[in-house]
Design a protein around this nucleic acid. Structure first.
Lengths: 235, 235
DNA sequence: CGTACCTTTGATGTGAATCAAGAGTAGTGG
DNA sequence: CCACTACTCTTGATTCACATCAAAGGTACG
């Protein structure tokens, strides 16, 4: 919230820390920063709708947003929950097609928009940028493939466990024998959709896992009591 | 089958026709061709297993193969059915991770293997190659996102219809008012898995659509009688 | 021409969605 | 600070789409 009020942010420094721009020269980073557009969103605001044209890609400075498919029957399918330092929209930009999904801020958010032209100039001048861009898209592709595997081969409980385990790796600092604390990044509703579940089903799964003493649930705080047994919970 | 016996194929000419290599100079294409390795597979043979390391990517000259996840319970999940001129394995190559799925020939197949080093040299020397590679990965990402949408938002019948409609666009040559013939590229078993269905369910859906006079089914020959009504079949 | 696999058809089972209420929990304004 | 509104989350009863199980044709191919 302190930064929201601050209109002057050190954009070059911020960009230079992103994996995507890691190997660029300071001059290149400054050039991108100069050409990038700031975009502020308040919670609940739409960044783009499905079908909108793409003019570049986005980087999240702070805040949080979701990428999701709209659906006739009101319920939507969340594909990704994104936070600071994450970028999105690259693939759509390279294909010159309209967005296949919509983006909505789920917290007050500051974004940088990097224009297509800026990217293409960089690609032409710096092969290492191309490699990073390719690596970035490859990662995205890989995790989507993982999602497809989850959706088609795993039960709802297994998907929830997979989600928790993935977030252990990020948050858990070495302490693997004891209990691990996770803070859910957003509402259970949104997480349920991300896991292709209804909120009711997610709630029941948390309940069952808690009853089996595998985890503890207290609002957004999840305690993993027995990592080993959770991994093997394979019914 | 005639080409299988022929050990001399004009590889440069073949490569030059691929979208990926479209803008390369003749010299570059010849260089790739010289460094590419031929790989022959007979129907049923594995190209790589889940977990194998990647040393480059593949291009299909002729034949057909499937990319799929193995599953403990024997049943597998087919992610892609690939044919001539299609490439695969780029993303895994760029990430330096092992394959997340396996590849199996579903017909006698000839592949070209382009080594990682070759790709990286090209990337460094030709920005247009980088753009094509990025466009290629973006397309792949886009279609995976479509798959995720299908799996999570559409019913089994809708997925089957979507599959048929997609194949109309490729095979259907303008004649939109009359009936359109489609030849399924492989067995119904594999197509069912690709659509996240059991063979039984796919069979029943074909039966229902045929009963409603929307399509005709005769082995691998599918006749679409009423494209308009098929598109609107939304139950 | 027989064996092995693909495909169809029918009967039954089940995981997760849907429907329906109630219990937190969080912001809002008087 | 407390009541008011609006969500979000939980819990239970019921339903349904699709899978599973079982068995009988078809089809291909050695």
């Amino acid at each position: 919230m302190t930064q929201v009020q601050d209109n002057r942010i050190d954009i070059p420094a911020l960009l230079a820390r992103l994996p995507l721009f890691q190997e660029l020269t300071p001059e290149q980073v400054i050039k991108i920063a100069a050409q990038a557009r700031e975009k502020r969103l308040t919670k609940g605001e739409m960044l783009f709708q499905k079908g909108d044209p793409s003019r570049g890609f986005y980087v999240i400075v702070f805040g949080q947003l979701k990428l999701a498919f709209p659906s006739s029957s009101g319920n939507e399918k969340v594909v990704a929950i994104l936070g600071p330092k994450q970028s999105f929209g690259e693939a759509v930009m390279f294909m010159g097609r309209p967005y296949p999904l919509f983006a909505e801020a789920i917290a007050d958010t500051l974004l940088l928009h990097v224009a297509k032209d800026t990217v293409f100039e960089l690609l032409a001048s710096d092969p290492s940028f191309a490699r990073h861009m390719l690596a970035g898209l490859s990662m995205r592709l890989h995790s989507l493939v993982q999602d497809v595997e989850s959706y088609s081969l795993r039960s709802s409980a297994q998907r929830v466990i997979g989600y928790l385990l993935q977030h252990c790796l990020i948050e858990g600092d070495g302490d693997f024998t004891g209990s691990i604390e996770i803070t859910l990044p957003t509402s259970k509703q949104i997480i349920a959709s991300r896991l292709n579940l209804t909120p009711e089903t997610l709630s029941r799964i948390f309940h069952d896992l808690a009853e089996a003493k595998l985890i503890g649930v207290q609002g957004k705080q999840i305690t993993i009591n027995d990592l080993k047994r959770l991994r093997e919970y394979d019914f």
